[in-house]
Design a protein around this nucleic acid. Structure first.
Lengths: 185, 185
DNA sequence: CGTTAGTTTGAGAGGACTCAAAGTCTGTGG
DNA sequence: CCACAGACTTTGAGTCCTCTCAAACTAACG
């Protein structure tokens, strides 16, 4: 599952794959559990095998969902994981999920041991960077309706799995507006 | 200059530094020249030693500036450079500038030769990723006035060097609105 | 079957947009 | 050294999108 997915980024040697695999630990969590609370330092990177979760933070007393994670995603609080500063966001399970966790220390050790693993991660970063760039452009330069239509096209399954309120804040729209957009289409 | 800046990310061995340095070529361009035209494939990564430039694309017949580059920035059309697909953006000089260019092929060769250089780039990606994430949050969840105030605080020098119209579209605001925001403050 | 989470509908307010026009600045040529 | 063209910025008027607050539905679950 994990190793399979990793091949999409960069093919590793058998040895590196085996060592990498050994560094991950399975984590099973229930709906509404938390992977991370704001204020805590995020020390792990997770691979989401099955399930769904979201990252959100509190702004003016309201929960703002700013990303979702689904099957085959790598998830973490990037800012906190990279800088080892306290997280500003919470990561909450939206469904019962199976995850695989690796600590930052173990990952660093893998980088030292295997150039190819660092390459894999470098390439993964490139892809994640491009994704984020697209989302940024959407946020800044498209209307609420366009953003919703974009989501419909690229990840329609989100709409079936996630409550409207979360989707609205993910798109940067109020729940009421999103409801009206939907009724218009 | 370049080598000096690179130390902020990750310290390289003397040998790696020398080899890296040899791979860069100086490029000097004038105001209003283009580093990249949309539709072309971006084959180089640039380090901006002195000057200023912007990335913009055309939307509904209007120029949308979506980033600026200044001294000490690495610049390229990331999407095009990473995927080697035609660029959707133009990169235009806003001032006469001194740049250092490295081709994608040379960079790949450096990655193979020196694990430490790939590490450097991996770390650079992390920093750029975090920066972009912040900008995304600003775009999605802050008002025009808040975005302008944020820019005032973090990079006030932009305001002196860049025409208002470019700044407005960078912030995702119309020029007229930005002008009104300024007069209110 | 009642309670709670989630969604829709309504009304009014406000921010930001567009189009249009008037200023302001700056550099170049006479 | 001045005048003017072109680039840039501000101001005005009217419109529309999205927001907020409130209330009514609807669905799901124990």
């Amino acid at each position: 599952m994990l190793l399979n997915h990793i091949r999409n980024y960069y093919p590793l040697s058998e040895e590196a794959q085996a060592t990498l695999y050994d560094c991950f630990e399975q984590v099973i969590l229930n709906k509404n559990d938390y992977l991370l609370h704001e204020g805590k330092i995020c020390r792990h990177l997770y691979f989401l095998e099955k399930g769904a979760l979201r990252g959100y933070y509190i702004l003016d007393g309201k929960e703002i969902t700013h990303w979702f994670g689904f099957e085959q995603d790598f998830v973490t609080s990037f800012h906190s994981f990279i800088t080892q500063a306290p997280a500003v966001e919470n990561i909450q399970l939206l469904e019962g999920s199976i995850l695989w966790a690796i600590s930052k220390e173990k990952l660093s050790r893998l980088f030292n041991q295997y150039h190819e693993i660092e390459r894999l991660v470098r390439i993964a970063y490139e892809k994640y960077y491009i994704r984020l760039e697209e989302r940024f452009v959407n946020a800044q330069f498209k209307s609420a309706t366009e953003r919703y239509e974009g989501l419909l096209q690229t990840r329609p399954y989100i709409l079936e799995r996630i409550p409207l309120g979360h989707i609205a804040s993910y798109l940067g729209i109020s729940q009421e507006t999103l409801s009206r957009i939907r009724s218009r289409l």
